[in-house]
């Protein structure tokens, strides 16, 4: 449409059906050309907000293997499509420039982080679990009770994790005899 006097938004608002000026009257040629990221996404995953325990539904839009938008899920009877500031910011949780995507290693007495590849880190951690367990193993406690455990390994965390993850964590640690396994529910 040519740029004419008739195209002034205020005139369109006064003469058209959009009296409040919140719809067609306020649209520019540019805004008409815009499309929502949600409509051009390759796929959408049904998810849940990772912050508080209300459990608001999320729709996560992915394009070219990048998250392009996270919206409240209107189908959720819990949240009816709403998200609070944290839920609304959760795309930023995954795309923040501060996010760590590689392993960092601090050697004893080190003053800086060092790089370490994931496989090596895993091997080193498995070695430490095995040796610490061996060194701190108790068949019996001080009173002679059979306890078969290690008091040398502790863990904290789980309230932000999935049930399936907590299940494997507790299962493995219990088999290893590590009992000081705790999470936010104690705090």
């Amino acid at each position: 449409m040519a740029k004419t006097f008739l195209n002034w938004p205020v005139l369109r608002q006064l003469t058209g059906s959009d009296v409040l000026g919140r719809g067609a009257a306020a649209k520019s040629a540019r805004s008409e050309e815009l499309t929502a990221r949600t409509s051009t996404a390759d796929r959408v995953a049904r998810s849940v907000c990772p912050y508080c325990a209300v459990g608001c539904g999320q729709r996560i839009y992915v394009k070219d293997e990048q998250i392009v938008q996270i919206e409240g899920d209107p189908d959720s009877p819990i949240s009816r499509g709403r998200l609070c500031p944290k839920g609304s910011a959760s795309k930023n949780l995954l795309t923040s420039p501060m996010r760590q995507t590689t392993v960092r290693y601090r050697r004893p007495y080190g003053t800086e982080w060092e790089e370490l590849d994931l496989d090596t880190a895993m091997e080193m951690i498995a070695d430490r679990v095995v040796s610490t367990r061996r060194e701190t193993w108790q068949d019996e406690d001080e009173d002679g009770h059979r306890v078969r455990r290690t008091m040398g390994i502790a863990s904290l965390g789980g309230a932000t994790l999935d049930n399936e993850e907590n299940y494997l964590i507790k299962k493995l640690f219990t088999a290893l005899g590590a009992i000081q396994i705790e999470n936010q529910a104690r705090i």
């Binding site: 701190t136 040398g152 863990s155 904290l156 965390g157 789980g158 932000t160 994790l161 964590i169």
Partner: peptide, 10 residues
């Protein structure tokens, strides 16, 4: 007394 510690999202 404790030698090794895991922190998992905490």
């Amino acid at each position: 007394k404790v030698k090794g510690y895991f922190l998992l999202g905490q």
